[in-house]
């Protein structure tokens, strides 16, 4: 075999374990789900193979599903916006820090050492009826009875921000770290104030990172089911909770399959729009 042919084969040999795992555990199961979505759950409870459009008709026409999809997208959007507003200054601070950046980044990663579920549940001990905040309020005599703070859309968004903020900070940080500080000096020397330099130079150059962080926050936020399950009330279900409900509670796999494919399609379109304008390479930079 020629050297060129061997070199051309080498990446494929190295990639083959990963490709095998992805094919077996991701692509084939997704294909199964596609097939499932056209099957039908009969009234007696068993699943009837075939080509039925009933699940898709229900998924795409039922106002109930549509409303929850819109709520899900709204919650994800609000969460992303809050993450951007809170994360940008933090990322700016780390990127421009004179001292130990590695330590600051380590502190940022620290929450990932604790399970996401436990981090989410920790809010119950802060906001619950017997939680830290209510105990403090009663102890100071500000309220007599505990205030109901948990189990609403606000706490869902709070939990999501808690979960997703580091992703935003990391992405913006990577972008800002690549912006040459001399550019701000140059803008200053030409007569721009610090704020004008930021708006004219630093902010536009860090937009790719902001967009990458925004995409990650939005996709992860829209796909979550743990946060609304733990911190949301009965009326705060998000779309992934519907999938959970259909598959685990109702054992209606065909309907669950159609619902999850709809969410996948909506988020997939968003990723494609992002890729068209900014390219997924930026996202990889933030993750790496």
């Amino acid at each position: 075999m020629s050297i060129e042919a061997r070199e051309a084969r080498q990446p494929w040999i190295l990639l083959s374990p990963t490709l095998t795992v992805i094919a077996l555990l991701l692509i084939i199961p997704v294909l199964f789900i596609v097939v499932y979505s056209f099957w039908l759950r009969t009234s007696v409870g068993d699943v009837q193979p075939g080509f039925h459009l009933d699940n898709w008709t229900a998924t795409l026409t039922d106002r109930f599903y549509r409303d929850i999809l819109l709520t899900t997208l709204r919650i994800a959007a609000v969460t992303t916006l809050i993450c951007a507003l809170m994360g940008y200054p933090a990322a700016y601070f780390i990127a421009r820090a004179k001292g130990n950046k590695a330590l600051l980044l380590l502190l940022l990663m620290l929450p990932f050492w604790i399970s996401y579920i436990i981090r989410t549940m920790s809010w119950i001990y802060i906001l619950g009826s017997n939680g830290a905040l209510n105990t403090a309020l009663q102890w100071f005599g500000i309220t007599a009875e505990p205030i109901q703070m948990l189990y609403n859309e606000t706490t869902v968004i709070l939990g999501l921000v808690h979960f997703l903020l580091p992703f935003m900070v990391l992405n913006v940080y990577v972008s800002l770290d690549g912006v040459d500080e001399t550019l701000e000096d140059a803008a200053g020397s030409l007569g721009a104030t610090k704020w004008q330099s930021f708006l004219q130079v630093t902010l536009p150059l860090s937009l790719p990172g902001l967009a990458a962080g925004g995409l990650l926050c939005f996709v992860l936020g829209a796909g979550t089911y743990i946060t609304p399950a733990v911190l949301g009330g009965p009326r705060d279900a998000m779309f992934a909770n519907l999938v959970y409900e259909a598959i685990i509670i109702q054992l209606n796999w065909p309907l669950g399959a159609a619902l999850s494919l709809l969410l996948l399609a909506v988020l997939g379109v968003l990723v494609m729009i992002y890729n068209h304008f900014l390219g997924l390479g930026q996202l990889m930079k933030g993750l790496g």
């Binding site: 040459d180 001399t182 550019l183 000096d185 140059a186 803008a187 200053g188 020397s189 030409l190 007569g191 721009a192 104030t193 004219q200 130079v201």
Partner: peptide, 15 residues
């Protein structure tokens, strides 16, 4: 920004 100076930087610092 109030000193009215022109600065040429080593790495050019073009936007």
């Amino acid at each position: 920004h109030k000193r009215n100076l022109g600065i040429v930087f080593q790495n050019y610092a073009l936007f």
